[in-house]
Amino acid sequence: MEDSLRARIRAGDADAFAELFDDTSPEVHRMALRATGDWAQAEDVVSLTFLEIWRLRQTVRHEDAPLRPFVLGVGLNVLRNQSRSARRHRAALARLPARENQPDFADEVVDRIADAEQVAAARTALGGLNRAERDVVLLCGWSELNSEAAAEILGVAPGTVRSRLSRARARLRASVDA
């Protein structure tokens, strides 16, 4: 029976290949699980083993030797290849310069959201002021200019700047309280 199974596998018979898979995949999985200690990696080894057997199906000989050793041998080679590949990958990563830890930007995002909310609230509050009061708040309150510098920019007396600023603050307090 095994000889006909070999011939059917060589011919590309999917049912014969499924039979071989059903008969031998649990053993390949056990071998891979014992070698790696990882269920997922063992499943990968099984998949790669049978992909490789399908690729090499023409090399299955007419010999009387059972197919089980052939399948386990291919599985062992897959394990070796994975191990070698992982070793090369670790070595390549070791050659890379160490990455600097990136600071957690979550707090910055929260701060930006809070800032955006405050700016929106301030714009709403400024919208309730007339243009002259708004200009004084922007220059003296936010840009931190003194009343003389703001008066020079606006072309008014420093006392006018101070009175506009006082009225603007009172209106802003009233809108915030409301």
Rank of each mutant, 00 (worst) to 15 (best):
M1G: 10
L5T: 13
R6C: 13
R8D: 12
A14P: 07
A18I: 04
A18R: 14
L20A: 11
D22V: 12
D23Y: 02
V28W: 00
V28R: 00
A32L: 05
W39T: 13
Q41I: 11
Q41C: 10
S47Q: 14
L48V: 13
W54M: 08
R57D: 12
T59Y: 08
T59N: 11
V60H: 01
R61S: 15
A65Y: 05
L67Y: 04
R68V: 08
R68Y: 03
P69R: 09
L76T: 10
N77A: 15
R80H: 12
S83M: 10
R84I: 13
A86R: 14
R88P: 03
R90C: 10
A91H: 10
L93E: 15
A94D: 15
R95Y: 06
L96W: 04
P97S: 10
R99Y: 04
R99T: 15
D104H: 05
F105V: 12
V109F: 07
V109Q: 12
V110E: 14
D111C: 05
A120G: 10
A122S: 09
T124K: 03
T124N: 09
L126D: 00
G127H: 01
C140A: 14
C140T: 04
W142G: 10
L145A: 07
N146L: 03
V156P: 01
G159F: 02
T160D: 04
R162S: 09
R164Y: 00
R167V: 00
R167C: 00
A168F: 00
A174H: 08
D177V: 06
D177F: 02
A178F: 06
